[in-house]
């Protein structure tokens, strides 16, 4: 399968690359940077791991930046994983409109414009493709400081549900993976105490496994998930 993946450079995205490459798939990955760990993976899979440096905050030029030359109509896209995101962490009384818009560009507007172009590619090739968005448990369980971030992920969950309904008759599926807290760069500013509190709210009392999130994404992309669409799959250690 040919999979378009955003935020491939580290964290969850890098692990999704690993899982999909191990399964024999080809990846078209975008992110702004290309750290050593990603370069190592490229060296291991030079033919199946394609990379382009793209800043998704430029949501108006998604088509030119990604679909013109890099992942064009010559590539039949089987799956799209919308994983790149930024977190805007603050209490609501401090919200700044420019920072809010900048986060929405990456977390919501670019993913919607990418979905538009992915669907057009699938239409051209008559592909019964699969779309997977990465949301966050903060949509379903409140956390102080995450209201703005959670609102952007809630928008994605609604968008996915309606994508599933709109394009289901053509065999195109759309689902969301909802991870709990994972030890990545995104959550690196949390103190030990904050982490302990977050993990205490889970049934399994620990951090969510990045591998488990990546494996769930790979499952939803595959034919094994043929009858699953419009769903939010929680991979969150049983957050309650």
């Amino acid at each position: 399968m040919n999979i378009l993946l955003t935020g491939c450079s580290r964290g969850v995205g890098l692990e999704i690359c690993r899982v999909l490459l191990e399964q024999g798939h080809t990846i078209y990955g975008v992110a702004r940077s290309c750290p050593q760990e990603f370069k190592d993976l490229q060296a291991q899979y030079p033919e199946r791991l394609h990379y382009k440096s793209v800043d998704l905050s430029d949501s108006e030029h998604v088509k030119d930046n990604i679909f013109r030359d890099f992942c064009s109509n010559r590539v039949q896209i089987d799956g799209f994983v919308n994983n790149a995101a930024v977190a805007y962490d603050d209490i609501i009384t401090n919200v700044n409109i420019d920072r809010l818009k900048a986060m929405y560009d990456v977390n919501v507007f670019a993913p919607i414009m990418m979905t538009k172009n992915v669907l057009r590619n699938m239409l051209l090739h008559h592909t019964k493709g699969s779309i997977v968005h990465i949301s966050s448990i903060s949509v379903h369980t409140g956390y102080k400081g995450l209201a703005m971030y959670a609102s952007s992920k809630g928008a994605l969950e609604a968008f996915s549900k309606d994508t599933a309904r709109e394009w289901g008759s053509l065999g195109i599926r759309s689902n969301v993976v909802v991870p709990g807290f994972m030890p990545t760069a995104m959550s690196s500013t949390l103190s030990e105490e904050q982490r302990a509190k977050i993990y205490a709210r889970t049934s399994l009392k620990k951090a969510t496994s990045i591998r488990s999130v990546a494996e769930t994404v790979a499952f939803l992309l595959s034919d094994k998930a043929d009858s699953i669409t419009g769903q939010n799959i929680h991979v969150d250690n049983g957050t309650i």
Binding site: N73, R120, L123, L124, S169, L170
Partner: peptide, 13 residues
């Protein structure tokens, strides 16, 4: 509307 979407995509291609 789906046919028109496919028409647009084919013409654009």
């Amino acid at each position: 509307s789906f046919d028109l979407a496919e028409l647009t995509v084919r013409i654009e291609d």
